[in-house]
Amino acid sequence: MLEFFGRLFGRDEGSKKAAKDRLRLVLVHDRASLSPQLLESLKEDLIETISKYMEIDTEGLEVNLDQEEDTMALVASIPIRRVRRGVAAKANS
């Protein structure tokens, strides 16, 4: 009886919540599926930008997308050979 009134007065969540939650989750995965080309071009851009500040080991560079439940993260491992002296000096001055 209580449930009936709950539904009548629109307090119950119904199946819409399930739809929304499932959709959110599936879209995180859909949107995260970057094409290999895109990931490659992201890698190149990263190398270019970071190289302005430090010398990096481009061979050992790894870029990946990590997904867990409804969050995702860009995880990059970038071995640094050395920080460029000029940049460090500029930052200190």
Partner: peptide
């Protein structure tokens, strides 16, 4: 169905 909570509302779809 929206009223019963059994269909996504306009706001739900736009938000997503």
């Amino acid at each position: 169905m929206v009223r019963r909570g059994d269909m996504m509302d306009i706001e739900d779809v736009i938000e997503i």
